[in-house]
Design a protein around this nucleic acid. Structure first.
Length: 598
DNA sequence: GCCGTTTTCGGCCCGACTGTTTTCAGTCG
């Protein structure tokens, strides 16, 4: 379900951006950004809080609490509407372009009247942009490539955003249907999706279609029919902000959406209950997977469509009720949706060699998390309580290390945290607490802190947080050296990409995977909705080379512990089994891995 | 506008990089 928290966090972040653009006080801007993160990362649903309750949210004081309360009730607050009146929504979308911040966005709007990305591209093409003070040829080029990056994901939304929306809609439609679920690329767990496909089984589609077009999300009805209805959601820049709450440019905790979630098409198809399985199989895809499966059917003298599996000669229906029946009648084990990409899964299913995929339930702990000691928004105790609630056998706190200057970490703070963690051990007898850190990999591959300090941590994750544009040879050497560091057990978000915002660093991936395998350094699958790093196909390459993985949330707030869900879907798309994932192992085996001589 | 083992004012996330300047503004992490 989409909570009020995420919606209001989006409004606060939008207000901060508008303030930044209209020359507001920078500390005031920062306050709204921090409040947005606080609200988005708060464990309690805003809708259940009164104003004093809202006031308890980190970084929310009297003034913002009033606006938050109003926003929960009415969907907005007057000061936001005032600024929205001054700056067209399209100007905010300009800021999705990397290296184009509030000042430049305002300049192109004020000077050239540019209020959307199309107009900006046109101004680049005809040279108008270069006339502006502060805009030289290099800036022109940076903007041009930035637009390409943003455009690359045009019309697509992050899987996490789509999943929230799809589940929320399924929840509301399900009471009117015999069965209801989402299908398509979302069910396959792709990192971004172009639309949402919802499938329902019902004898009478009328009430479902009526409820569907009446959804508050339905801005435009594109198609209205008995078997298929399509709607489009409204374009709303604030809605582009992530499920976890964000604050624009800022810290490692920010997770901004690749594209505005507005304008997303949602299809509802209603089929008779008898053909549910065939329809679900068909509408889940992928197209390539379905072609492969139908090929198999043809060879067996059968015909497969969304209406069922038929005898090709007599047109007699054979099965259609469940996906299992369809696959089994074709001589296949049921294939998990995350594998249905025609990347060998049909042959594997035929040979009975499908992997037993890693699941969220199989995760015994989280090995990459933060607290408010650095850039998290929840305290150590809040994070521990939430982790215990999830039933974890172990949990690692891995706050940032000193070289990420903005986090102001010191050895003293780290050691004090270690003390506090030690004190908490008695409170969580069922959950082993690991004191870790997230180190920064310098351009030369070295990390923060001397060896004697590193040796005292239970766990060291090492990640790239700077120098994203080094040449491939240097980046590769950098990560290989980090793998070779005997104190580094996990490489965090190995490519550093942010979906739709930042390209991955230039790496010779096979060389890095070889190094990780040779040194026994695990590679992370980071569940941040805009990271999903490593990504699906790279996981498979790495796994083929014998790499071990960590499926991590990189949570900076309590609700973000759920990010392991997105990491797990990605791991499944990389065909991983629990045995290949460190944090599916029992504690004793994990400990052996962490403490073995290297 | 928020916050406080530095508490009701005066700080606040700091440093680097880059392109455009001609001494610095904008952006990022």
């Amino acid at each position: 379900m989409v909570r009020a928290n995420e919606r209001v966090a989006g409004l606060l972040a939008e207000y901060a951006e508008l303030l930044a653009m209209t020359g507001g006080d920078r500390f005031k801007i920062r306050s709204y950004e921090k409040a947005a993160r606080g609200v988005g990362g708060y464990a309690t649903d805003l809708a259940t809080l009164d104003e004093p309750g809202i006031r308890k949210i980190p970084n929310v004081g009297a003034s913002i609490a009033g606006k938050v309360h109003q926003a929960v009730q009415t969907g907005t607050f007057p000061q936001l509407e005032e600024l929205r009146g001054q700056i067209p929504a399209g100007v905010l979308t300009l800021m999705r372009i990397p290296n184009l911040g509030p000042a430049k966005a305002l300049a192109v709007y004020r000077e050239l009247g540019i209020a959307d990305i199309d107009a900006l591209l046109a101004a680049v093409e005809n040279g108008d942009l270069r006339q502006l003070k502060g805009f030289g040829p290099r800036t022109e080029e940076v903007i041009r490539t930035g637009i390409e990056l943003v455009r690359g994901g045009a019309g697509r939304v992050l899987m996490a955003t789509a999943l929230d929306l799809a589940e929320s809609i399924v929840d509301r439609l399900a009471p009117l249907a015999d069965r209801c679920t989402y299908a398509g690329s979302l069910r396959r767990g792709k990192e971004t999706v172009g639309d949402i496909d919802i499938l329902a089984a019902a004898a009478d589609s009328g009430p479902l279609m009526a409820a569907f077009v009446a959804l508050p999300e339905a801005d435009t009805v594109l198609v209205r029919g008995d078997t298929k209805t399509s709607i489009r959601t409204a374009l709303h820049p604030a809605a582009a902000l992530p499920a976890a709450g964000t604050a624009g440019a800022g810290t490692d905790a920010d997770h901004e959406s690749a594209t505005p979630m507005g304008g997303l098409q949602i299809d509802l198809r209603v089929v008779p209950q008898e053909v549910w399985g065939a329809a679900l199989q068909y509408f889940t895809g992928s197209r390539e997977h379905n072609v492969r499966v139908r090929e198999l059917a043809v060879h067996a003298g059968l015909k497969l469509s969304e209406y069922g599996l038929f005898d090709a000669a007599t047109d007699e229906l054979i099965v259609a009720g469940t996906e299992q029946e369809v696959y089994e009648r074709l001589g296949l084990r049921w294939i998990p949706p995350t594998l249905r990409e025609d990347l060998g899964e049909v042959a594997a299913a035929r040979a009975g060699e499908l992997p037993e995929l890693v699941t969220v339930e199989a995760l015994r702990g989280d090995l990459h998390t933060h607290t408010d000691l650095t850039d998290g928004v929840a305290t150590l105790d809040e994070m521990l309580a939430a982790a215990a609630e999830r039933g974890y056998d172990y949990y690692a706190v891995t706050d940032h290390a000193p070289e990420l200057f903005m986090q102001r970490m010191t050895l003293e703070k780290a050691l004090a945290q270690r003390e506090r963690l030690a004190e908490r051990r008695a409170r969580y007898p069922g959950m082993r607490l690991l004191h870790g850190t997230e180190l920064n990999i310098a351009p030369d591959g070295s990390v923060d802190w001397p060896e004697d300090v590193l040796a005292e941590f239970d766990l060291c994750v090492a990640s790239v947080h700077s120098h994203f544009t080094l040449p491939a040879a240097e980046q590769t050497r950098r990560l290989v050296r980090a793998c070779e560091n005997p104190y580094v057990q996990i490489i965090g978000h190995p490519t550093g990409r942010l979906i739709g915002r930042r390209e991955p660093i230039d790496l010779d991936l096979p060389a890095v995977f070889e190094a990780a395998a040779a040194t026994g350094t695990a590679l992370e699958i980071n569940g941040g909705p805009d990271r999903l790093d490593l990504r699906d196909e790279h996981i498979r390459w790495a796994a083929e080379r014998g790499v071990t993985f960590a499926v991590s949330s990189d949570a900076h707030a309590v609700p973000q512990l759920d990010f392991v869900r997105y990491a797990t879907l990605t791991a499944q798309r990389g065909w991983l089994t629990p045995d290949q994932v460190l944090n599916c192992w029992p504690y004793e085996r994990l400990l052996e891995f962490l403490t073995r001589p290297r």
